[in-house]
Design a protein around this nucleic acid. Sequence first.
DNA 1: CTGAAAGCGCTTACAG
DNA 2: CTGAAAGCGCTTACAG
Lengths: 346, 346
Amino acid sequence: MRTLKTVHDVARAAGVSVATVSRVLNQHPNVSRKTRERVMALIDESGFRPNAIARRLVHGRSGQICFLLSNRDIVHSFHSRVLKGAEDYCRQSHNQVVFATVGYRLDDDLPSIELPRIIREHGSIDGILLAGTNYPNLCRYMEELGLPYVIFGNNLLTGSLAYPRKHAVCFDEQGGAHEAVRFLIELGHRRIAWVGNLTKAWYRRRYEGYRVAMKSKRLTLSLVDLKDEPNDEELGRRALPILLRRFPKTTAILAQDDEAACGLLEGLRKLGIRVPEDISLVGYDDIAEIRYVTPPLTTVRVPKEKVGWAMADLLFRSIAAEDVLPDPVPLPTELVLRDSCARVSR
Amino acid sequence: MRTLKTVHDVARAAGVSVATVSRVLNQHPNVSRKTRERVMALIDESGFRPNAIARRLVHGRSGQICFLLSNRDIVHSFHSRVLKGAEDYCRQSHNQVVFATVGYRLDDDLPSIELPRIIREHGSIDGILLAGTNYPNLCRYMEELGLPYVIFGNNLLTGSLAYPRKHAVCFDEQGGAHEAVRFLIELGHRRIAWVGNLTKAWYRRRYEGYRVAMKSKRLTLSLVDLKDEPNDEELGRRALPILLRRFPKTTAILAQDDEAACGLLEGLRKLGIRVPEDISLVGYDDIAEIRYVTPPLTTVRVPKEKVGWAMADLLFRSIAAEDVLPDPVPLPTELVLRDSCARVSR
DNA sequence: CTGAAAGCGCTTACAG
DNA sequence: CTGAAAGCGCTTACAG
């Protein structure tokens, strides 16, 4: 078996030219039924498989894109969901996704960033998905390379709150927070606090959604803004005493993300403050890690798979169009109702 | 810029042959300092990047392996950690990992399995990592293809409890359960129950570890064996009343996995049975989803990244050696002590 | 140290 | 419908 290694072997065995073998392989119509069948039989019984690399060389297309996860850990379920969305898209469009990671900083100059070889190389990928957290210097580099790319817009740190207007897929960060606040207001809450780190652009956007929703109902803002915490859960833990001191009448809290919500939850439990009876709590992201939290956490679900899917879609469309497409509108979030919110008790 | 697209362009611009350009590119020693510098200058200022596909064609090596996740969801943190381990290995060895997924069943014949194109093709990958849950038919196929592969041995369903002896990386499933039981015994527990689904080989191995550890101390087995539950958490939930009825004196439970432990935990909480004061509980896997569980769950941590790393390592060594290497010994698990176990109360 | 040429394994006009 | 030949963009003996 596996005696026929190249189109030449097959051609020789079939008594035809390599051109004909190639035509059969590519289902070109201009092959007589007889030859086609003879060649196919040979291919089937020998298990011959054409070399994909050679094919790519002549086509000038690799059929591969790179999913580059910057400054993040794939183990974080958020990012693996985005990857899943991208892979789903690629699978159905017969493309491949190369998974790679990189770590770099805003002020790293390009040569010092240890980009995976596949990106510095030429020709092995048709385009790149910039996932994770990114800075403008990497985008600039992609443009220098002339490599088509699409970025996860929410986590591109540009110093501005606006979403990038090109090469990007975003979800509606403000909108999610806005909806959560409206929901709490409908439950009768008036003293609603926001807990988070305004240093990061994405949390600032969430805060904006909170702020606007509160203002539109003329409610007073209660902000606990902490920075430099070791992690988001710890942020929630440390924010709680501050919040209770500064805004003792708070009946509901919107946390910057699920991790912070879990930190708050732990603190509340230790103080004997019941959720949702005494205080309602809403997270943000709907990550896998909150799956078994008690009580089940009401949260703003980010459409992670959809983000990955839309990124791949935009990338392939811009590869095909060979110019920059307008970005799609921000993807909507979804408020997932579980058991951490209740009607305010009077 | 980017005016020089091929080695020919560079050669012409530098007034040398393409062979010389290639030598410079590959840091071949036989190039005079002067020519090297001239060519390098041209390459640098033009931003010329050699075509990786052409390179691969002549080398007959793709520098890529495929991480194929079978019958599982990457979103499950277990598998993304294995992927991370594999990617870590590949990054430091200058290889690339193509991420793909597939779903198939034990009795699917090969042609009906929708394997990603990259695998059916020839030449685009040097080898494959079979992650997720697999059946022997896929391994057989890899052998037919002559494609070097390494499989995640614990989740290969062969009908036997023995680990596969070739092409596989495993972790010590029995050992982990054994250690957990020994730990509980040291805490004074005697009535230790095992809750799980003996239908699945990997849980049977865990049960084996439990059984042997109990027997070696002449303790009585308390088994709650449930099958056909919709998911593992539900299994834990439904197992609890059965366990309490059949083995009312139980003081400690070893769950088949963390999800089942969470189901048990929920049930115990609802019944007002305290963990760990009334009953000690141990999970298995140490998945991300138990991160915020109350009380923090003592569990058997599976070395997921190490599994991925070792799989990649074995794969590259067997690609290089061109014959089958002996499998490494099963990787040890680690008992992670948190707050769900206590000394038995008399 | 350097270059001309063959070759990696395909595909695709171009002729016939 | 079929084949001879050129070409995709590199690398690597082989000669010099």
